[in-house]
Amino acid sequence: MLSTSPSLDALIAEFSRLPGIGRKTAQRLALWVLKRPRQEVEQMAAALLQVKDHVRTCSICCNITEEDPCTICTSTKRTHSVICVVEESNDVFAIERSNDFRGLYHVLGGSLSPLEGIGPDDLHIRELLDRAKEGVEEIILAMNPNVEGEATTLYLSKLLKPFGVSITRIARGIPMGSDLEYTDAATIARAFEGRIAL
């Protein structure tokens, strides 16, 4: 239902577009914004624009970053010969929380899914192949444990084979059908220990 204010309606419409936010929640959020002091709302608006202006994709690992290359890719404390391939930036956060992996990452930006029209060209696969050519010893495939992640793992392992790097996948201690993002650190740590050659 429309309110008596077109500006409020426009804000509700914007909030409704956020993932997991329904119409009712959007209304609540919009009314909350309305009640906050102007300065606070300005901060919020600035933060939104800041993200858009300053955050970009690392040209090496395709993770989100403000400096290019990102702090992980330039770190001297990490093993540069091992790359862990994940679907999304969220997965990097999850694995970093476990503190068990000290190599570099590569963020694909999703997984193969013909149903959603996502093919190899829609993922950062070419960038991964470029890196595989340059002195990498091991590539760990850490896709989400679902059918799309599985197909992507099989596709990448075949694609990477000619480069002569060791290709492993994390063990499937993680329940099928769940997202890596929601898996606890201990489970992820175990999965890394139990990785197997492909």
């Binding site: 193969l112 013909p114 149903l115 190899p120 197909a151 099989l154 596709y155 075949k158």
Partner: peptide, 26 residues
């Protein structure tokens, strides 16, 4: 997923050639 790929041959012939094998193995 496999059927979506197969039924889209006209638009994605290259994708079928490169990725069908992964779906088949899975």
């Amino acid at each position: 997923q496999r059927n979506a790929l197969l039924s889209d041959m006209d638009r994605r012939p290259e994708e079928i050639r490169t990725t069908l094998d992964a779906w088949d193995a899975s």
